[in-house]
């Protein structure tokens, strides 16, 4: 009961945030500030001085991807916008709802997956949750599937997708 209630509330809050705004630039800005900090808490990303990040976009989300790339200004990130999946990167930020085939391929190669929309948390490991405060939105099932090792602080402060 508590679980289902929590899920309902999370979906409710997400839908209100994104119903009329879609992904606006402020949300992307918040993600651009927060996601690199989460990268630092992922043990599997061993070379923290150079993390290769791919923003996975299609024709509908290319402008969103470009905006996000502009906001991701950390020196230790090497960022590229890609339309066709390749496995040369450590982290993939998805800007649209990827297929199960793509997802499985990324999981198989233990890639870290972020989504810009919390509606895509079921096909990513991390997203953003805007409640009264901002929280990392975490999908533990996919984290476990890819055998990712992450700092427990994320579970302590994040919202868990169940």
């Amino acid at each position: 009961m508590v679980k289902s209630m929590k899920k309902i509330i999370i979906l409710f809050l997400i839908s209100f945030t994104f119903l009329f705004a879609n992904i606006n630039k402020e949300v992307l800005y918040i993600e651009a500030k927060l996601y690199p900090k989460i990268f630092m808490l992922i043990k599997n990303l061993q070379n923290k001085k150079l993390i290769k990040v791919a923003i996975l976009a299609n024709k509908n989300t290319i402008n969103t991807a470009k905006t996000l790339k502009n906001f991701l200004t950390n020196n230790n990130l090497k960022i590229k916008i890609i339309k066709n999946l390749n496995l040369n990167y450590d982290v993939y930020i998805i800007t649209y709802h990827i297929s199960n085939k793509t997802l499985n391929k990324l999981l198989k190669h233990k890639k870290v997956i972020f989504s810009i929309s919390p509606n895509d948390i079921n096909i990513s490991m991390f997203s953003i949750y805007i409640g009264v405060r901002v929280y990392p939105y975490i999908n533990p099932i996919l984290i476990k599937k890819a055998n990712l090792r992450i700092d427990p602080i994320l579970f302590k402060v994040g919202k868990i997708y169940e």
Binding site: F16, T17, A21, E26, I30
Partner: peptide, 11 residues
């Protein structure tokens, strides 16, 4: 930022 930009208005 979320508070300032009213992203969390409905909560």
């Amino acid at each position: 930022i979320a508070t300032k930009t009213k992203l969390n208005l409905n909560k």
